[in-house]
């Protein structure tokens, strides 16, 4: 079969994103277009599903099929798309509020079923669209509109959660390193089964704590890490400034394994 070689511009639309200048979502959008181009996936075979939030507007800036749905429900919508037509590449995008707050249970269940969708979370540790309330990944002590004296909630660790739920691909990237994101997204989209890529993605307007500078001082790429080692992946996923004494944040591929996908299991019935 002849495959048309794509450029990232082939996935662009005329419409410009409405995100604030400097928003981490630009990095995610650019990296996603480049990853799709790397894989040269026909535009009509891509369905990008999102929920509600700043980052959930992303499908509108891509020349693909897509559903910009309701808050927290992108994963089950995407699951329906994938099961109806497993040939489609189904990519879910959304924020930490959408995916780790209101929609968290769906991630757990999609992970344990190993549904073949790629889940990209733009994790900015704050509710941006609704102008700056606390989110499930807001660090303890951080002041937001709804935590004026500092958050007292322990933040969610999406990577250990996904690992515990049985996800077969778990990675973390950083919006400030687009080329690295392209590599992660390319791997994630190529992966058979549920793939989570948590992307540290600064909100320049409402999160004055977890800024690009804050992340640049802390992130480092996983090196000499065996992504087939589940327990090691779990150990590395626990590295986080508030959890481990190193104060550093690893990015890269934490874990990858092979398991039959949900759509394969269903087709065998």
């Amino acid at each position: 079969m002849k495959v048309e070689v794509k450029k990232s511009a082939d996935y662009s639309v005329a419409r410009q994103p409405i995100w604030c200048p400097g928003c981490g979502d630009y990095g995610i959008l650019e990296a996603l277009k480049r990853a799709l181009a790397t894989l040269s996936i026909p535009n009509e075979d891509v369905v990008v599903v999102s929920g509600i939030g700043c980052s959930s507007q992303l499908p509108h800036f891509l020349k693909t099929y897509g559903i910009h749905g309701i808050h927290g429900r992108a994963i089950p919508i995407a699951t329906g798309v994938k099961l109806a037509n497993p040939k489609l590449h189904v990519i879910v995008v959304g924020g930490d509020g959408d995916g780790y707050g209101i929609g968290l249970n769906h991630m757990i269940h999609a992970a344990r079923r190993n549904v073949g969708v790629t889940y990209i979370v733009s994790n900015n540790q704050v509710y941006g669209l609704t102008t700056g309330q606390t989110s499930p990944t807001t660090l303890r002590g951080v002041k937001t509109k709804t935590t004026p004296w500092g958050s007292i909630d322990e933040p969610v660790n999406p990577l250990t959660l996904a690992l515990a739920a049985g996800a077969t691909f778990v990675a973390r990237g950083f919006s400030g390193d687009v080329q690295h994101l392209v590599e992660l997204f390319t791997e994630a989209i190529s992966h058979k089964g549920f793939a989570l890529v948590d992307v540290l993605s600064p909100c320049v307007t409402f999160n004055k704590v977890n800024t690009y500078e804050w992340f640049r001082a802390r992130v480092y790429k996983l090196d000499n890490h065996n992504a087939a080692d589940y327990l090691e992946a779990y150990r590395r996923a626990l590295e986080w400034p508030t959890l481990s004494p190193t104060g550093r944040i690893p990015i890269g591929l934490f874990y990858r394994s092979k398991k039959p996908t949900y759509e394969e299991e269903i087709s065998r019935l």
Partner: peptide, 26 residues
């Protein structure tokens, strides 16, 4: 017919919407 018992009713209808969007009767 693909039959799924999802995690809750919200996921149930959301999956049906996704499947229908993708072109099958759901």
């Amino acid at each position: 017919v693909v039959v799924v018992q999802p995690e809750d009713e919200i996921a149930a209808i959301a999956m049906a919407i996704g499947a229908s969007y993708a072109g099958v009767r759901a």
